[in-house]
Amino acid sequence: MPWIDACATDDIETEDLIRFDHDGRTFAIYRSPDDEFFCTDGLCTHEQVHLADGLVMDYEIECPKHNATFDYRTGEAKRAPACVNLNTYPVRTEGGRVLIEV
């Protein structure tokens, strides 16, 4: 699968996320408290709301709609109402850019 240049590392604040759209699909790209980068599907598995408006605390993203939480490193659904995990995608950084394999 191809690596896609998604954004600059500086586009995402520490312990935050941004939305990234590519080829008709939408993703969420995260920067962890220790400045690692991760990527999941963009939409919550409960009601397909975008996670980009949600809150990142440590390694969890809280959905902005009904506060389901997911571990964005593994995609694991941690709290109801979500019961289906998020897909995750490989990420690497190169020369100040964030690349995702989707």
Partner: peptide, 11 residues
């Protein structure tokens, strides 16, 4: 509009 208030309420 939308979820614009959500993050501040979560905080």
């Amino acid at each position: 509009t939308g979820r614009s208030a959500a993050k501040d309420i979560a905080l």
